[in-house]
Amino acid sequence: MNKIFNINSALTIFIKDFRSELRTRYALNALIMFVITTLAIILFAVANETPSIEISAGILWIVIFFSAMSGMARTFVSEEERGTVMTLHLIAKPSTVFFGKLLFNLILLFLMNIFTVVLYLILIPSFIIKSYDIFLLTIFLGTIGLSAASTIIAAIIAKSNTKGTLYPVLSFPILLPLLMIVIKSTKSALEGIEIAKAMGDFQVMIAYFVVITAVSYLLFDYVWKD
């Protein structure tokens, strides 16, 4: 079977998703409200306390993890519900569909993370970043890793009966190594460590992204085809 994937078709699928998102604004609205509500709860809970570095780094990634879970869940479910799966089967190769969806999730997650981080920086005064280079790289690499893993799990979830509830359950064990390393490196960004010392963490994150994407690319055929 010819598996060469076509970058133009992948882009077309991305643009199609992007347009339909702009029209319905399902994911965007839900995500923004989700981030705001979670942050509000945290602010009420924290009240006048100053959370320690560990806690504030952890909370940031908890917010990101759960909003990603609520936003990405519909990546493939929406296609099933609208009955457009067959059309996609006809017009594109599985790998093309996968990369188109991955690209869309990536952009969506990037927008969401920028929004979350900016809000977090404004609302939580004790969250002071000392080394911006580490922090930005962590957010960037964390986002691409998160979107790679959540795309393939979203594809699996779309074929099951209990679509939404199972998503975080299935994703958590897969995302746990990434979350652990990302929280650790956020902590070192808050402590103001030199970037050279955090290089090992970044290598792990890049390796995670590459491994998950490669495996998803190989296995997506089995998930996508009935």
């Binding site: 893993a149 746990l176 190594p177 089995y222």
Partner: peptide, 9 residues
Amino acid sequence: VYSIIAGLT
């Protein structure tokens, strides 16, 4: 598929 992805992490 799920167990392969989980095994790789």
